[in-house]
């Protein structure tokens, strides 16, 4: 590598960004005309430099700051869904699958709020608890289970018959009557498999503390007790 070549090299970044003085730029231009190696490097750095235009100027100041983190129980919630699906199969096939509602907009475009009262007080709750909603619009079904975990409670919800894509927000209601968020899911339905997918969520509250389960999916309210 000649000294000339080396000096040129270290100017290639500034050349690529158009930051050189006219004399310096000419020197680089002359060199890369005869040096394919530097030519390739210059072109490649120019392309890299042009990508910087994509950076939103408003973000420049925050590039050294850490990115936002998801909520503390997020990992647990996602990991819960990445389990052996065999464990969920029996429940999925327990009832015949209903076909999703036609696209009338009757259900999915409105918010759905579902309140499930879990027979407060009586009986033991050491084991998991199943629930089924009644009094739903035709074609819609919701059931699932609550499973005690080392910390809190796992919530599995099986929805059928809503419009695919409907956003459902799940809350638990405790003795304080306050709604505690337990996560969100979108109702998913596979047309190929004629199958809906269960949503797996969790809450930090113990099963014994949960009085009811609330699912909101818009501005319309469906309600059921068990």
């Amino acid at each position: 590598m000649s000294p000339d070549h080396r000096e040129i090299r270290e100017n290639l970044g500034a050349w690529a960004m158009g930051h050189l003085s006219p004399e310096e730029r000419e020197a680089v231009d002359r060199h890369i005309e005869t040096c394919p190696e530097c030519r390739a490097e210059a072109d490649s750095l120019k392309q890299t430099g042009s990508l910087l235009e994509l950076i939103d100027p408003a973000l420049i100041g925050s590039l050294s700051e850490p990115l936002p983190n998801p909520s503390p129980d997020f990992d647990e919630r996602v990991m819960a869904g990445l389990r052996d699906p065999e464990a969920r199969k029996p429940r999925r096939s327990r009832r015949p699958w209903r076909i999703a509602l036609p696209a009338t907009g009757a259900i999915a475009l409105v918010t759905v709020a579902l309140v499930l009262l879990l027979g407060g007080g009586q009986g033991s709750r050491e084991a998991g608890q199943e629930f089924t909603f009644a009094a739903l619009p035709p074609g819609v079904s919701i059931d699932g289970s609550l499973e005690p975990r080392a910390t809190g409670t796992g919530i599995e919800v099986n929805v059928n018959g809503m419009r695919p894509g409907t956003l459902c927000r799940v809350y638990v209601k405790t003795a304080s009557d306050k709604l505690e968020p337990a996560g969100t899911f979108r109702y998913r339905y596979s047309a190929e498999e004629h199958e809906s997918y269960p949503a797996t969520l969790s809450t930090a509250w113990d099963l014994s503390e949960i009085h009811s389960l609330v699912i909101k999916a818009g501005d319309q309210t469906f309600r059921t007790d068990i």
Binding site: R9, N11, G13, A14, H19, L45, T48, G49, L51
Partner: peptide, 11 residues
Amino acid sequence: KSRVYYGLRAM
């Protein structure tokens, strides 16, 4: 200048 070069290479 040389840091711009190495910075762009790193990019």
